[in-house]
């Protein structure tokens, strides 16, 4: 475990340095990039943003770490987050409810829609044997297109293609998301270490046959991790909507929180508590990336930097394994 941490740190540092170097070379403005880097990690405003953006990433990563432990390799958190944020927007700005009723619905409905959407790859895998990797990836795009359709039709407000805005009294304070991800990570940790279901997930991932002798079928375990990861991702999307998105405009590609979550889950060895820290690091990269838009670095570069870190970590960890 400590060996692995060393590999993660070495790979992370190398990948991070390379990502900054590439951006500096491409834009030809290294000084401004370093200035932004210092600003992101020292000023209050970007630090608050880091906490805000870490919520959807962490919620996805915590759910996915459960799923990956059971060897159910879904990449569907991205689409579940998008649907979760749509559901939260509908509950707060369209449902007609007010106050705590609207807020309750804005958490319940997204969790439900994320979990329901996660059922599709589960059903296709459990009853037809279709690879969940591919079906969940393509369902992300379907979620984006369905959302764009809703924005252009039922949710459309005003002359431009955009939606209503979450009413100010229903918006979430920045620290609420932090409380939620800590609670989710602790619950996932307890589930894994203290419950029979956690044991089933663990055993199923390592030896499916052994899990069956415990009395848990493959379908039960896959269903459990699908519902949990989908529900958590949907909640992450809801908090994103309530705390910083506030409205929706059409997307040409998914926003990337769920993809980052998949990378985080892997980087933290599917450990929900470690995923908290990795999520904060990855969301700081997103905030850093957004600050570089003024220098000409595209938004998607943050995801590229995250991926570079993971690729280098892959090599660093593999090297350690070979030396042992």
């Amino acid at each position: 475990m400590e060996q692995r941490l060393g590999g993660v740190l070495a790979g992370g540092a190398l990948g991070f340095a390379l990502a900054v170097t590439i951006a500096s070379l491409a834009t030809g403005r290294p000084l401004e990039i370093v200035e932004n880097l210092i600003w992101v990690y020292t000023s209050p405003a970007p630090l608050v943003n880091t906490v805000l953006l870490s919520v959807p990433i962490a919620m996805a990563a915590i759910g996915l770490s459960l799923s990956y432990r059971a060897r159910f390799i879904t990449i569907g958190a991205e689409g579940q987050i998008v649907l979760g944020s749509v559901a939260a927007l509908w509950a707060t700005a369209y449902s007609g409810l007010e106050g705590s009723a609207a807020l309750a619905l804005a958490l319940l409905l997204p969790a439900l829609s994320g979990a329901l959407y996660a059922l599709i790859p589960f059903l296709l895998r459990a009853y037809a044997g279709a690879s969940e990797v591919l079906t969940s990836l393509m369902l992300n795009l379907v979620a984006v297109y369905v959302t764009n359709y809703l924005i252009a039709t039922y949710l459309r407000e005003g002359a431009f293609v955009m939606t209503r805005i979450v009413p100010p009294e229903l918006r979430a304070e920045w620290y609420l998301g932090l409380v939620m991800i800590v609670a989710a990570a602790l619950s996932a940790h307890l589930l894994l270490t203290r419950t029979r279901w956690g044991l089933a997930i663990e055993v199923y991932g390592r030896a499916p046959k052994a899990a069956e002798t415990y009395g848990y079928s493959a379908r039960q375990v896959m269903l459990l991790v699908s519902l949990l990861s989908g529900g958590l991702a949907g909640l992450g999307g809801a908090v994103a909507m309530l705390s910083f998105q506030h409205s929706l405009t059409p997307m040409s590609f998914p926003p990337g929180y769920g993809y980052a979550g998949a990378l985080v889950a892997w980087l933290s060895s599917n450990n929900p508590l470690a995923a908290l820290f990795a999520s904060l690091f990855f969301s700081s990269l997103m905030v850093f990336g957004r600050s570089l838009q003024a220098v000409g670095v595209p938004l998607s570069y943050a995801l590229a930097a995250q991926a570079l870190i993971v690729l280098f970590t892959l090599i660093a960890v593999a090297r350690e394994r070979q030396w042992q």
Partner: peptide, 20 residues
């Protein structure tokens, strides 16, 4: 799976960066 997905994300970002 991890390496392939990471490659996809990395290449999307690099593609956008090259285009600028």
């Amino acid at each position: 799976v991890v390496a392939g997905l990471a490659l996809a994300f990395l290449s999307w970002g690099l593609a956008d960066l090259v285009a600028t």
